[in-house]
């Protein structure tokens, strides 16, 4: 039995609030985008809820960045350059092949590094590229009056709308993959439990996998 405290309270609070906001934004966003469907929220209400949730998401994102800058959590997002492609290949091979043959996890969770290279890359991309762009495009919608008439020769509001839509689809995609990939821990619920309790627990240490993760 090994247990690592990997997810401090602020991070868990942020994560679950963010998750809730994601769901609200997806539903209200779809209600605005595909307005009129029976299962959708009434348009007027959807707009207000979406705007509010978007503002809260912005505050949450700022909190996340400050948290990573001011605590040790930020180190988990520092990509080690040496052996980067090798690790990436090994991890991708595990998800694409090894996992179907009961191969051991190629990555060992530790207090120093809780994310594998693939996770690192996707979280970095989502939190430091897609999310800020999504937030920026959302705010650009609200304050479009300050935008120029055209951007890059295209109508600016339309450009903002298309950027927001593309980013939204990408983040829905991320959410799907994220929800699935967290089930690939030692057990299906290992990672979910870790994000609820803060403790990463592995009940059945297998050869070489949790040795360094033991507390």
């Amino acid at each position: 039995m090994s247990a690592l405290y990997l997810y401090p309270r602020w991070l868990r609070a942020w994560h679950w609030i963010n998750a809730l906001l994601f769901l609200v934004l997806m539903y209200t966003g779809a209600s605005m985008h595909f307005s009129g469907g029976g299962w959708l929220m009434p348009f007027d209400l959807a707009v207000t809820v979406h705007n509010t949730a978007g503002i809260l998401l912005t505050l949450g994102w700022i909190g996340f960045v400050i948290g990573n800058l001011s605590t040790e959590n930020g180190r988990h997002y520092r990509v080690r350059v040496s052996g980067f492609f090798g690790r990436l290949f090994v991890q991708a091979r595990y998800y694409g092949y090894g996992i179907f043959h009961n191969a051991p996890h190629p990555f060992h969770v530790s207090a120093e590094m809780k994310l594998n290279t693939l996770q690192q890359l996707s979280y970095l991309g989502v939190m430091y590229a897609l999310m800020p762009l999504l937030i920026l495009s959302g705010w650009a919608f609200l304050f479009s009056v300050s935008l120029p008439e055209t951007l890059l020769g295209l109508p600016s509001v339309w450009l903002v709308a298309m950027a927001h839509l593309t980013l939204a689809y990408l983040l829905v995609l991320f959410l799907l993959v994220h929800m699935y990939i967290i089930t690939t821990g030692e057990t299906v619920t290992t990672n979910l439990r870790a994000m609820i309790t803060g403790w990463h627990r592995e009940d059945e240490p297998s050869s070489g996998q949790t040795e360094e993760a033991k507390s």
């Binding site: 985008h33 307005s35 707009v47 919608f141 609200l142 304050f143 509001v157 298309m162 839509l165 995609l173």
Partner: peptide, 26 residues
Amino acid sequence: KAVFNQAYVVGMSRSPLLDALGLSVI
């Protein structure tokens, strides 16, 4: 005004290509 912003016009974010692409990839 950001919360109660009424500026969004239904359909302004609609793009048949992006919708088809986004929904099929998902």
